[in-house]
Design a protein around this nucleic acid. Structure first.
Lengths: 205, 205, 205, 205
DNA sequence: GAATAATCGAGACGGTACGTCTGGTCTTGCA
DNA sequence: TGCAAGACCAGACGTACCGTCTCGATTATTC
């Protein structure tokens, strides 16, 4: 993350516990206050840490929230449910469950909004959150190919483009359903969505 | 000394020009500063208006931004390009073009993020922005049915559910592509996306 | 002072009560905390005023303390005790009494120390405090001349130089006695000091 | 098992060079920044020393500055110019020259101001600075008595009281002239001041 | 020569105040 | 009554120092 101190240099080393406490406090504050009313002073207090300690490690609210939210998405796992459709449904449901949590809702969209004016922030979001989710698409496809549900890809560039499209559609639809339409992305919805997605991809190939 | 002002009460009437100026100033400030650095004092100054005037008409930053952004989406029109696929591509491209403008990017996602903790705000967004877009889905389907491209719907509840799904998928995918992936939703992408969507809907029926 | 707003311009006028409350709070804080631990935030709180209100009127701690201390010295009056010696003793005792108060002790020397690196501050001290005291020397001499105790001055430049010398000696001695030697400038000391001063001036003429 | 090193304990001894460097760095910082903007961290950096080293030897800024300034006044010497008046003029000019230096101006008055709320600090100032100056008064009187310019004192208590008065008047006047009036205590001024002082003391006896 | 013990540099730590900025509210006088 | 101007209270901002605390690395004495 930030600390690490490669080859033990001079001075007191940074407290590893502080990082953990700060990120947890950030999520707690997101739940209680939401992004716009979250203040770094409050987070520091909740974490039992001085404001300076926080600023020493993160340059601002956006960066902190990205890291705090990123940890939530690290829980995502690709389940092995036997079929491609079931695997997708499983991972989408997990994604929806995370997005239903107030700390994710509040934080994620806000930093995405901020990232429209801050390239470094967008890059951080991509590295910390998006790319870690994208692996699920690739893994899922590989598993389906192993099962014989999908043919092996012939054109790698085309495969990458399709993976990106899938990712935009899945993540976008779940986010929009959850945040804008404010309806739950429950099993029924996920089943309908997955069916459309898979048929669309199969027929359009 | 006979009063006039149709339904107006006594005293000086509100300036209609002020509303226009304020909303325009808000969009200008969104472009220059983004949502998080936009301040109502600054908007008032740009509009040549006192802060009090602004607070008399909007209860806060979020409501103001919703109204300012909503005006952008009123430009959306369903084009008649002859086929359902072409109609969809046309409207999606328009949507993408609006979303590519910095005042929309910055403002829209931020108020959506805020709306996760403010039901009144979410309702305002739905009324001012979402429902005005959703009509395009319904119109497009009606036109396709008239052309014979789609069968008339049998179950109205199912039809509504499908319209919602379409809307979440379309809006979500374009937003995610534009904001998170930070890639342009250009003609090529829109064509690929539309193909998957239509095939998916047709096959899944 | 600062406010005044010459010919009533637009906007809400500054509260006159705030100035009074702030200066009183400053003296109170000087008593409780001394100069170095006095904070503008604390003064604002004591005065029941927002920090911004304070900064709108004073540019910093030094300027504020000068004004707060200056009001103390406005109490100085030249008493009419019949003879020059008695008049001097009277005014020196008053001066000593003010300097014995903790808000004067703490504040005055600190701003003088600061003024060694801030010409504007030194000018403010001179205008607000020193010149208002210096009038006492001139008045006292005029009264003594009227009584016939002193001859009328012949050379105005020489007279001004002597007034300055008197002022430096009187103010300097009392301050040094009070602050550095930390002994009271009581009646006995003042009597001895005045005798030396008057004889010195008379003989040296 | 016979210990050696007289009073020394085990472990690495303190660096003597550090003390010198720190005091010099303190005076340098006083010149560059003045008392109020001088920070111990900055002094440590200038001295090429860690903050801990500094705190191990001085309890705070005030104590450090007292010691740094005290070294300046150790340069004062009572010159033998043949007459009491000339001797006094000589030493007063030396005193004025030291006080004209920015590190003395800035530092001395500030710690005096601080000492109004800190008895230990006042005692340190008295011991390190004031008493070392006061010897000059006593020496000067003894030399004048040896020359026959002054009668031998009869009452030791009265003599001490007079020495204190002289000291308050001399030091006070020079300080006030230099810092408050911001005029140079040059030869001309010192001559006029000395004349008044000596005549006053002689006539008032 | 090791063991012991204090000092040294570096720099992170919990705090506190800084001076500025914004959010909303409240007077003013003019229209 | 609306409006521009601008003062008002409240409170967060990000920075700078404070004085303390770990660290690993010296540098002396003591065994």
């Amino acid at each position: 993350m930030q600390s690490s101190t490669p080859a033990g240099r001079a001075g007191r080393p940074r407290s590893a516990a502080a990082d953990t406490a700060i990120l947890a406090a950030t999520r707690e504050a997101l739940v209680d206050l939401g992004w716009s009313k979250l203040t770094l002073g409050d987070v520091a207090m909740r974490a039992g840490v001085a404001k300076t300690t926080l600023y020493r490690r993160w340059s601002g609210k956006n960066e902190l929230v990205v890291d705090a939210v990123a940890e939530l998405f690290d829980q995502l796992r690709l389940p092995d449910r036997g079929t491609l459709a079931a695997d997708i449904e499983g991972v989408v449901l997990q994604f929806a469950a995370i997005l239903a949590r107030p700390e994710a809702k509040s934080g994620l969209m806000a930093v995405v909004a901020e990232s429209t004016r801050d390239d470094a922030l967008r890059e951080r979001i991509r590295a910390s959150i998006v790319d870690r989710q994208k692996r699920l698409v690739v893994e899922g496809r590989a598993r389906a190919q192993a099962r014989g549900e999908l043919p092996p890809e012939t054109d790698p560039a085309e495969a990458a483009r399709t993976a990106d499209l899938i990712f935009d559609v899945v993540a976008g639809a779940v986010v929009h359903r959850t945040l804008v339409s404010a309806e739950p992305a429950d099993e029924e919805w996920v089943r309908g969505f997955t069916r459309v997605l898979l048929h669309g991809l199969a027929s359009a190939a």
